[in-house]
Design a protein around this nucleic acid. Structure first.
Lengths: 324, 324
DNA sequence: CCTTGCGTTGAGAGCGCTCTCACCGGTGTG
DNA sequence: CACACCGGTGAGAGCGCTCTCAACGCAAGG
């Protein structure tokens, strides 16, 4: 159906080699030949098959953003879209396309194995990957794979400094007089959950304050449930730090429905600085998440193939609004 | 680097043909041979190269979700994620992977042309495509491409019945006593903008009510600006229908900051029923957008290659909450 | 004894492409 | 006149895979 290089060559009255040389723009060719080949290609609507090309050159032509085990409900904001977009932008500068690949938790190793054999992919950016997945990472993928989240020997990690952000937020809450600060975390199975918990615990223990941890799931509904739980277990809580804005927004909804003042009675802070953070009442105090910067760095790392430090943490900044 | 079928065959002491037959599971082979080949494949960590396979079979192995010209800021909700996810799920049932491809407005024809030549792709689902893009659609893509949004000869269209949803919403607003109903639309360049406008105008004219149209951009910030505009031009407006929840939420933020009661003074309705719609105060009245159903149908259509009606509209349902 | 049929196997072509290499005719040098 | 050289060109190998086809050994049937 689609015309091949052979078709173009025939139409231009030259050999396949010459056509390839002209279209690929690498070898010598007379102006006349050049012209004829190009004209034929346009006339036939020829587009080279990158898959066939990859087969012979041994170089892939697409970068895969592999998202591990994320139920879309887990994310009430377009996090993955942002990662793919940033990756695509970087890839475009290298003539490389970006593809999204969802890896259901249970079949992640299988899919990754298939990916490893695919000569059309030149590398991958793992998102939200777990230790189990990294452990099973195909050997042939090492060196052309990076991770947004936790790292692994041979797999450099890029992530927001959510530990630092947590410390800063707790500090802010403390400075504004809060002493009974609860934290709504991500789900335990997600690797990005641990560091904020550690930072929170360290800060609370250092200040001699009680540790109040409740697991969430990064959704507004989850934040709602978690807030209910906090209220139930520790009624005297005066501040809540949720590790995602969606959860914080859910928490605020609960508080408002109970007639509890925010931030008067309970301060609420989030994380991510999603668009809706500033549109609620009260506007959400939160910490930025430089997704694009992180994804761009990750993509660049696999495309450039240059040495990368095992872990790169990107600073998050506090955004002071009304809720805390 | 990565082992090839040849390597496996050699390790198992058989020919490449036999190895292919065993691993592909199509031809006869003695139990002993079968065993040896499989063992060798596992031991070497072999994964077949789908690109090479596609080259000979002529069948692609991935379905591309091609999103035309959408700035991520345009969407404050994970619409694209949802489409990709649904597509991936359908694809998985056919052993076909899904890839996301962003098409910047200006380079859409070029990228589509490249896509057409790529033997690794078996088809595409166009999202938010425009007439200009469809006009330039490569011939070899016709028959294996569908559109979520507007259609084209040979390109069946799947979309939510946003015209019907608009009529229903206006009717609801009218029934609850509203008479000066303004509408915040999508950006003019997006093809999904027109039908709701037509439906709104028809309803208003039929009821002898004034038409009050303001363009938005599907973001919360855009909704904010549009609401300001409405207030400025038609201070007596008593209802606003925004064609996305994000815009409706932005509109509500403006009204609240002005001390205007919602829905007391002005009713606000949205479209999409995103997660945050129910978390604001007041909870947003809106219309559902069955993205997954639509995407699944679109993906199935290209994978099944069966005849499809030129246009399939999926019903939207009104969700009555507090804001209207 | 030869034929037929069957289960099993490997040789080989070829998918669309890149790229090395050899070739060809024309020009410049010794 | 022989030689090297050079821009321009095509033949052909081969990337990893699938799949057709022929060949092989062996049992059953005539």
């Amino acid at each position: 159906m689609a015309p091949t290089l052979e078709d173009v060559a025939r139409a231009a009255g030259v050999s396949r080699s010459t056509a390839s040389r002209v279209l690929g723009g690498y070898g010598p060719a007379s102006p006349d030949t050049r012209e004829r080949v190009r004209a034929a290609a346009t006339r036939l609507g020829y587009a080279p098959d990158p898959a066939a090309r990859a087969l012979v050159t041994g170089k892939g032509y697409r970068l895969v953003v592999a998202v591990v085990g994320l139920d879309p409900a887990v994310l009430d904001d377009p996090y993955v879209d942002r990662v793919v977009r940033a990756t695509a932008e970087v890839g475009a500068r290298y003539g490389i396309g970006a593809s999204l690949q969802w890896l259901p938790m249970d079949s992640a190793p299988t899919v990754l194995h298939r990916l490893a054999g695919d000569r059309s992919v030149c590398g991958a950016v793992l998102v939200n990957t777990t230790e189990a997945v990294l452990r099973a990472l195909p050997r042939s993928l090492i060196g052309r794979v990076v991770s947004i989240g936790i790292g692994w020997p041979g797999v450099p990690s890029f992530d927001v400094d959510n530990g630092g952000a947590t410390s800063a937020m707790i500090q802010h809450l403390y400075a504004s007089g809060r002493r009974r600060i609860a934290m709504v975390t991500g789900p335990a199975w997600m690797p990005c959950t641990q560091r904020p918990i550690d930072a929170y615990q360290a800060a609370m223990v250092a200040a001699g304050l009680p540790v109040r941890l409740v697991p969430g799931d990064f959704t507004a509904a989850g934040g709602r449930a978690a807030m209910l739980d906090v209220l139930d277990r520790w009624p005297d809580t005066d501040a809540v730090f949720a590790t995602s804005d969606a959860m914080a927004l859910g928490a605020i909804a609960v508080l408002r429905s109970r007639g509890i003042e925010v931030p008067g009675d309970i301060a609420v802070a989030g994380f991510d600085d999603i668009p809706f953070a500033s549109y609620g009442v009260p506007a959400l105090t939160t910490a930025t998440h430089p997704v694009e910067r992180i994804a761009a760095a990750a993509a660049t790392a696999v495309l450039e193939q240059t040495w990368m430090p095992p872990v790169t943490a990107y600073p998050s900044e506090l955004v002071y609004r009304e809720s805390a």
